[in-house]
Simulated scan of single mutants.
Amino acid sequence: MHEVRQGQELQIVDICLRMLQPRELFRAQGFPDGYIIAAMLPGAGQGPDPRQLRA
């Protein structure tokens, strides 16, 4: 994509950044490598078990 501003042609160039993996994000925030990321455990993020909900 390019555009002309004030008589000068400008071009947008992709700088090719990648998304960090969850473990990399935790490391960047100072968590140790052995820290357990609960959201990555099997069954995480599925919400509460309907049998455990009370009316």
Rank of each mutant, 00 (worst) to 15 (best):
F31V: 08
L25I: 14
G30T: 01
Q21D: 14
P50T: 02
G7P: 05
L41R: 08
G34P: 12
P42L: 01
Q52S: 12
G43W: 00
L53Q: 07
R18M: 03
I37S: 04
R27A: 06
G30P: 05
E24C: 02
M40H: 05
G30E: 02
L17P: 13
G47K: 05
L17D: 11
A39T: 02
G7Y: 01
Q52G: 10
C16E: 12
L10D: 06
I15E: 11
L25E: 14
F26S: 13
M40N: 03
A28K: 06
L53Y: 05
R27Y: 05
D49F: 01
H2R: 15
A38Y: 03
P42F: 00
G7L: 04
L41P: 05
R23A: 09
Q6P: 13
C16S: 13
Q52Y: 07
E3I: 07
L41V: 04
L41E: 05
Q29G: 12
D49L: 01
R51T: 06
A28H: 03
Q21C: 15
A38F: 03
G34Q: 12
A38D: 08
G30K: 05
P42H: 01
I15H: 13
Q52E: 08
G47V: 02
A39P: 04
G30A: 01
L20W: 09
R5V: 02
F31I: 06
Q21S: 15
R5Q: 06
P32D: 02
G43K: 00
R27Q: 06
P50L: 03
I37L: 03
V13P: 08
E9V: 10
D49E: 03
E9S: 14
I12F: 15
L17Y: 10
A44L: 00
R27F: 03
P22N: 02
